[in-house]
Simulated scan of single mutants.
Amino acid sequence: MSSVSSSESERSESLQSDTQPGATSSSFDIYATYERFLQNEDISTPLAAILALTELVEKSNAGTMFELVKALNDGAKSLKEGTPNPISLNCGCELFVAFVSLFPHDSDTFSELKTELVKQGRSYAAEALGYRDRIADLSLGFIKDDSILTHSYSRVVMKTLLRAHKQKRISVYVTEARPRGLGFVLNVSSLAAAGIPCTVVLDSAVAYVMDNVDFVLVGSEAVVESGGLINAVGSHQMAIIAKAANKPFYALAESYKFHRLFPLSQYDLPTHNPSILSFPRTGTLSTLSAQPLSSSISQLHEVPTVPSESHSALLVPLSMTPEQIARNPDVDYTRPDLISLVISDVGHLTPEGVSQYLVGMFAG
């Protein structure tokens, strides 16, 4: 009898610990849930974060709104700690936590409220999957029979270009988007498969090609409260060149990428750390695996080059090492005065309009 009572007591204590206010099921791994959603190519980082937090609400044992918001903030913190570049993820987390905090309801019980929050979160994510189509439609009015310059890979930019190709005669210049080369790897293959004329441009040749394009079209990691843009590194210098050449610089951004962040410089971004572009303490160019410049270019771009005396004395590494890539920034900040227009699912916005929209969005 005593052993039975002891067993029942242990089960009772275990049940109480599992249902501790604000706790979440011990089997729930929010980061694994987030990565599971990311396996769907149509789901972007902010939407994956929203869906992961929605599932956290469903699994949470919180009994009050205070406990639920704390659980969401803890979950958002776990997601950010596991992500090298959390800016886009921050947008989704910030939006969902604000939504939960401001959600008007007439539920009889807190359990019913949580059920409604889960329903609304999933409904929003399903609706948001159509935002790229809406942006593509809104962008068509700005695209004629043009030559377009784009940078890095963006799903909303790609959808817009493919949509425009059905109605216009466009050609696209694509930057390499170093250090990871996403522009070359993803953009060119997708554009070529659709029959869109495209050519790869060195990141260092943007100024050279700017006179040949009608406008610049980029995606976004986030659009911030100043009306500025956070996007793949190189976007800022591209915007400066476009401004100098009097060419429009358009940014495409889903509204769930609007972020309450007000950077004043590149070093105010959450991704910045002291190791970015710092000088290595050990090792020099001569200690790296190196070979003649002409040979390096041949292997990198798979085109023949003619050796010359001026090249033979120069040694460069064949490619960037992972350490060298990590020492470079993933994203940069483009000032609002360099952006002609932000085209979003909520309409065509000037940088000032973005600020006004953000204030309204988070004011409930």
Rank of each mutant, 00 (worst) to 15 (best):
A244V: 11
Y250E: 09
D214F: 03
H301M: 14
T321L: 03
L314P: 02
L140P: 07
L95F: 10
T160Q: 02
L349Y: 03
C93Q: 05
Q291G: 12
P46R: 09
K59C: 09
S17R: 15
K70W: 01
K119T: 07
V118A: 03
V118H: 12
V100G: 12
Q237E: 07
A164P: 08
S25V: 06
V213C: 04
V97C: 13
P329M: 06
D137R: 15
C93V: 12
M210K: 09
I343Y: 03
S14H: 13
I50K: 03
V303W: 02
L138P: 00
D137C: 02
L129N: 02
A242P: 05
D106I: 07
E302T: 13
I196D: 11
P336E: 08
L217A: 05
G82C: 15
P179D: 09
D203W: 06
L95W: 07
T45L: 07
S171Q: 15
G92D: 09
R335Q: 10
M158Q: 13
D42M: 06
S6V: 05
S340T: 15
D214Y: 01
P86W: 12
M158G: 01
I230Y: 03
G130R: 13
L89Q: 08
E254V: 00
G183P: 05
I325D: 11
Y34K: 12
Y267P: 07
F110W: 05
G347D: 08
G141Q: 12
A177M: 05
R134L: 15
K257C: 02
L288A: 13
Q20Y: 10
L264I: 07
G141Y: 02
L15C: 10
G92F: 06
G283A: 07
G234Y: 05
S152Q: 08
S88Y: 01
A76N: 06
R169P: 00
F37H: 15
R281K: 15
L138M: 10
V224M: 01
L191R: 00
F99G: 00
Q120L: 01
L140T: 02
L252C: 04
C93L: 02
V4K: 03
L95D: 14
N212Q: 14
D133E: 13
P292S: 05
F66V: 13
S7D: 14
V200M: 15
L102K: 14
N187E: 01
V346G: 03
S220W: 00
S294C: 10
M320L: 15
E309P: 04
P336A: 08
S226L: 06
V354C: 10
T287H: 11
K166Q: 15
T199E: 08
S319R: 10
Y173Q: 04
T150A: 07
L217P: 04
L149W: 05
A313F: 08
P280H: 09
P84A: 15
R132W: 03
S310V: 09
L191H: 00
I50W: 04
L338C: 11
